[in-house]
Amino acid sequence: MKLTFIGIDPATDTDESPTVWVDEEAEDLVFQSYTADDETVATCARTQIPGHSSGCPEGEGIFRVPFRMVPMIREACDVAERSHRRRLAQGGEDVSGSS
């Protein structure tokens, strides 16, 4: 797996480092950030989403990403989208779920 580093929260010191990467092969965004507190996790678990069970499935997590990272997340989305389009142009399968 090759991750493309996009950015790190500029307001953090060396011990805290919310970060965003793109896995261009899988076309996924990869985040490192703060684990959500118990209240946030409980609130998310109570949220009813049509067609889905409540709670957080095993293998998934709830975390917070600082708002100041929005520009980096947008850039990561652009990188992933370019990877997806490049793969389609090379005859790859569309696995995005969009029509």
Rank of each mutant, 00 (worst) to 15 (best):
R85I: 00
D78W: 04
S17R: 15
V65A: 01
C44Y: 15
P18S: 09
D37A: 10
R68A: 05
D37V: 06
G51D: 06
V79R: 11
A80N: 10
R85G: 00
M72F: 12
T47E: 14
F67I: 03
H84R: 13
E81C: 09
G55A: 07
C44I: 15
E81G: 01
A89G: 14
R87P: 08
T40A: 12
C44Q: 15
S96A: 10
G59T: 11
V70R: 03
L3H: 13
M69N: 01
V95I: 10
R74A: 11
R74K: 09
G59E: 13
D13H: 11
S54F: 05
G91A: 00
T35P: 04
F67Y: 07
R64P: 00
C56F: 04
T14I: 11
P71V: 00
G59N: 12
L29D: 04
R87L: 07
R85A: 00
T4P: 00
V95H: 10
R64H: 02
R85N: 00
S96V: 07
R86A: 15
A11L: 15
Y34A: 04
D78H: 00
S99L: 12
G51L: 08
V22I: 12
I8K: 15
E75P: 01
F31R: 12
P50H: 02
S83V: 09
V41Y: 08
A26T: 11
H52W: 00
P50M: 05
R86Y: 13
S83Y: 11
S83H: 01
D23V: 10
A26Y: 01
R46P: 10
G92W: 14
G97F: 03
E39H: 14
C44V: 15
A76S: 02
V20L: 06
R46Q: 15
A89K: 13
Q32V: 04
R86Q: 14
S33I: 06
P66Q: 05
F5H: 14
D9M: 05
D23R: 11
P57Q: 05
E81D: 11
R87G: 04
A76R: 08
T12S: 15
T12C: 14
F5S: 14
V79G: 02
D37L: 09
Q32L: 02
P66I: 11
T14V: 13
P57E: 03
I62W: 04
R87D: 12
A42I: 09
E24I: 08
Q48G: 11
G91S: 01
H52K: 08
S54V: 04
V95L: 13
A80E: 10
V20N: 07
G59W: 09
R87I: 07
A45Q: 12
M1P: 13
G91T: 01
T19W: 01
D23S: 11
P71L: 01
L3D: 10
C44E: 11
D38V: 13
L29R: 02
A80T: 04
K2G: 07
R74L: 14
R82V: 09
F67C: 04
R64K: 06
R68H: 05
P71Q: 04
T47Q: 15
D37N: 03
S17W: 02
